[in-house]
Amino acid sequence: MLTELRIAGFGGQGVILAAHIIGNAITLVEKGYATMTQNYGPEARGGAASAALVLSDEPVLYPYLTRPDILIAMSLEAYTRYGPEVKEGGFLLVEEDLVQLDALPQVPKCKIYGIPATRFAEELGKKMVLNVIMVGFFSAITKAVSPEACRAGVEHEVPKRFLDLNVKAFNKGYEYGLELLTHQGERTHPGEEMIPGLELENHTK
């Protein structure tokens, strides 16, 4: 199984760190394979940041994304730039206070979930943990990586003095994701397959 994931936002949101956490979780904890690439071009200097991960249960050959199965969009620009390339039926996870879905002429035909991650991060006391909230949300919604592995990834990547805060942030995003799933009635309990036919709905609250 090969999953292509893109995480995008603006500089300072911790896009690259979020990708590192997921990469760590997959390779070091779940013993899978992950290849991460990131944009280094002039576009990466203008405030936009993007990281791409190919996740697989066997060694990754082609290093880049062809069409992402999952997009985590943490800014409007990330959504408008990368939204159209998400695979039909894939996942689009957005920072719902920053991304207006109607900013694209056509909302991508995929499962869309929103979370007010920046607001949650501010409530936790540090805006910078919004990336880890997004990782928690990603783990809950997509099940691509287990929460245990992600927590280990967080532990591996963040400085010790911020670990508690980041674990809290992860849990916040994770629990919100689970709650959203239950709330929307899409899944009866975590881990069960998505009921088909609901792809076009907008699940932002």
Binding site: G23, A34, T35, M36, P63
Partner: peptide, 10 residues
């Protein structure tokens, strides 16, 4: 090359 140099893996 740039791809191998900037690529992150285990």
């Amino acid at each position: 090359d740039e791809c191998v140099g900037h690529m992150t893996e285990k």
